[in-house]
Design a binder for these strands. Sequence first.
RNA 1: GGUCCUGUGGCCGAGUGGCUAGGCAGAGCUCUGCAAAAGCUCGUACAGCGGUUCGAAUCCGCUCGGGACCUCCA
Length: 497
Amino acid sequence: MSDLKVYNSYSRQKEVFTPITPGHVGMYVCGPTVSGESHLGHARPYITFDVVYRYLQYLGYKVRYVRNITDAGHFEEEGREAEDKISKKAVLEKLEPMELVQKYTNLFHWAMEQFNTVPPSIEPTATGHIVEQIEMIKQIIEAGFAYEVNGSVYFDVKKYAATHDYGKLSGRVIDDLLETTRELEGQEEKKDRADFALWKSAAPEHIMRWQSPWGVGFPGWHIECSAMATKYLGAQFDIHGGGMDLLFPHHESEIAQSTICNHAAPVRYWIHNNMITINGRKMGKSYNNVIKLTELFSGNHPILEKAFHPMTIRFFILQTHYRSTLDFSNEALVAAEKGLKRLWDAYEKLQAINYESREEGPGTELEEKLKKLVAEFPEFMNDDFSTAKVLANMFEIVPVINSVKDKIIPVGALSAETFKLLQSAFKTWLEDIFGLKGVTEADNSKLQGVMQLLIDIRKEAKGKKDFATSDKIRNQLAALGITLKDEKGGEMSWNID
RNA sequence: GGUCCUGUGGCCGAGUGGCUAGGCAGAGCUCUGCAAAAGCUCGUACAGCGGUUCGAAUCCGCUCGGGACCUCCA
């Protein structure tokens, strides 16, 4: 099998993945800011990196996956509103800050469960690591790369850039940065406009506040990730993930902070997912075009024509390469929904077939084709996680499965070995690696019994050519949202829409 | 304004210079008491204009369009 290659944002090219410690992978992914509800855009990184996590484990790595919860809040705009985003909202909603944070954290966890994502190994909170952040800031000051002004601490970007490559990750030129940075209030505290806050002094009304060597305040925007990543993954770790919109300034600043503290570049492979767009524009609060996950699952949103199942979303996301933008539309999601159903129906049929045939024999052309398609699954994944191509191959196999089921492909065309290969490959890839699940839940044994009874009655009616009765059963069930299908050979199957 | 990405058939989307991606929708056929599924067949698309090449959706240049970041942002 080929080596895993990942596109490293830092080098801007695909590189062979080699972990620092053989057999182990440390992965940090920027988690949600729990000051509000997650929307469709947020689903992308967590599903993308869930598959990365699952795939690395499939490859045999022991992975420590750290994904933070940002519950201390960042600023609306640095300096302008000397106010914590979370505390601000808390006032509006008349909630305690931690109450608010808890509410949205719970909601986030609920959504992640709907998406069938595996929980990270560690999910540290920013508020739980104030001490670590203060320690790190102290180190940066001691190293001479930060300075204190009026109880706030700023990172000295210019000094750092003199000896380090600030701007490399995001393709920024430091001089341009100085010219293009916007005029903001509170800038006068900084020595240089490109500098960023490590610690901000808190105004008296500020609710979230902690004691520090520089007075009462709260941590700056980027330090939490540096502190928590260092604590749980070490000075250098393998993978850091997040959305492309975090490249600058968040990840760029993270590199600077960590590099000063740990005397080494913190991350080997930077992986960034692209945005989900709607009408070609990034989904985001500032664009006023967000669809919250709760709205998506319920269909309760003006631009939604219907509700969409979390698995449809998951599949929708996996059908695109993670570094491409993905444009949302009702039509696109309906297409994904139908595609997933077709794939999943075939998968369930595949698992249900008890295939008995020659144990071995000359490989037919069909067999060779199937083996090739399956063998390509890991090849595609190894090429920077091309989930879309793996799914395309699966869809090529779907007609074969259906044909075996309907006996259009005769028994004996496939060896039992090939057939079992399909069964195990589909299970591994669909369930274990892609984390997909069936959309319809019909796991009610009583309902199954009732359905079997109706099917028996319908079979009898059909046998007597009593089509009035047989059609009545099928039509009434259809009205209830249950589709009954006649199959070749007189069997019947059903599913809930 | 700066930096970067991008423009593929009705829609969504893969695409490593030469070989049918795939999904959805649509058309025809087969199967079927009817229906639904399912199977088979069908679209010869790559923004435009040049260039490199035996050969370009794929490389280069220009033009036009869209987007991201430069501010919290997945």
